[in-house]
Design a protein around this nucleic acid. Structure first.
Lengths: 233, 233
DNA sequence: ACCTGAACACCGTTCAAGT
DNA sequence: ACCTGAACACCGTTCAAGT
């Protein structure tokens, strides 16, 4: 619904600016949250702001720019930092906060996926992860790999969780009407009931598996260093 | 370019069917591979087939249906099965084949992400994973969690790899013109050079970390079973 | 059954014209 | 500087009309 439904504004610059870049971003995010990512249209957003579609182009270069800016607005609001002494806790809470932010805005993942360049703020989790891993002697390629493992898992599960994959993931539903026989999926059907799936604990499980992997690398490195020391002395 | 550029076809049914559902799917996939996911348009696809846009609707319910069918066509062609004796190898090659298929069709990941329901064939990796894990005593919730870890990691890294994230992931480029200072990303800048990043080995690394996690659970379970046995006897 | 042509209700974006 | 209105080049899809 437009803000001025009855009194139509005449052309020309209004006395006080009705539009701001920030207002546009906020309203766009709100519209996205309520009506979904696909619903965001320059025309619909303009309508929502009580304004002509073209008015948006005074504050935003293009739709791509708009989406990029929303993502930046969203990610810069996340506080990734915390002062836990344990390196595992620092990494965990960092990705948990990212996850929480994305769950709070159901279209956030879809939005991120649509971007060609990630907003700069998402480098914070990377920096925090690399710093924490450095503490236990995991550096270089291995550290970056652990980071990607964490990031890809986090975003991947979010993607599943948000679009409610379990209407389509429930084998009973997904297999219905397909050429594949249900008999070929014996283990799936015998597995845990999808109705009682808990994404939160699955996420914590995933984090701990990956961080255990980091710890193993750490142990291996210190051992091989000790081995080298023993040989040289 | 249309197939009949000069001799325009008159309305009415042609003597031999020019269009098939399969032909449409194949050409759409080809067009997607060459010109990208966004380039796929009912009108452009029709043009490519030398046909009116509406002709497609005789073989395809909608654009959504078209995309779903392409995904199904693509995934059913993947051979996930192999007869390696080692459970780790069976899981690894299964996901490696999924990965190879997606890398062969650069828009495949984008296509999958756009679907509301995954094509049934992607349940094969789940079945194979659950079966292999069952062999080492990892079942139920834990097994499904391991599967999701593998699947989310695989698709997540593919997503990064395909859209060539490293123009935007290179901190030097991504941080340029942003409000975030480069000094806040000391560990990133000190980390491995993005130019020499190897996705293939990063993928193998990820798989082995996750499968190590599965092995740890297996060991923990057999130990606790042994403990229970010792206490009861 | 299978194709065309016209039409409908949308898109993002440019451009000239207003104040 | 900031908004409007008309226009352009696109979309997906429906529907009647052809054979």
């Amino acid at each position: 619904m437009p803000r001025h439904p009855n009194k139509k504004r005449a052309p020309g610059r209004p006395r006080h600016g009705t539009l701001t870049r920030e207002l546009i971003l906020k309203r766009a995010l709100g519209l996205m949250d309520r009506e979904g990512f696909e619903a965001i249209t320059m025309r619909r957003l303009a309508d929502h702001l009580g304004v002509t579609p073209m008015a948006l182009y005074n504050h935003v270069r293009s739709k791509k720019d708009l989406f990029g800016s929303i993502a930046e607005y969203l990610t810069t609001q996340i506080n990734f930092d915390c002062d836990e002494p344990d390196w595992r806790d620092r990494i965990s809470t960092c990705f948990r906060r990212l996850r929480d932010a994305c769950l709070a805005h159901p279209s956030a993942v879809h939005l991120m996926e649509s971007l060609e360049a990630a907003p700069p703020a998402v480098f914070r989790p990377m920096e925090i992860t690399l710093a924490a891993l450095d503490e236990i002697g995991v550096t270089g390629k291995d550290a970056v790999r652990i980071y990607f493992l964490l990031m890809n898992f986090t975003m991947g599960q979010l993607s599943y969780e948000i679009r409610g994959p379990f209407e389509s993931l429930d084998p009973a539903q997904a297999l219905a009407g397909s050429r594949l026989k249900g008999a070929e999926f014996a283990y799936i059907q015998r597995s845990v009931s999808f109705a009682e799936w808990d994404f939160d604990s699955a996420f914590d499980f995933g984090l701990s598996v990956i961080l255990n992997g980091a710890e193993q690398i750490s142990a291996r490195r210190t051992k091989s260093r000790a081995g080298r020391r023993a040989r040289t002395t």
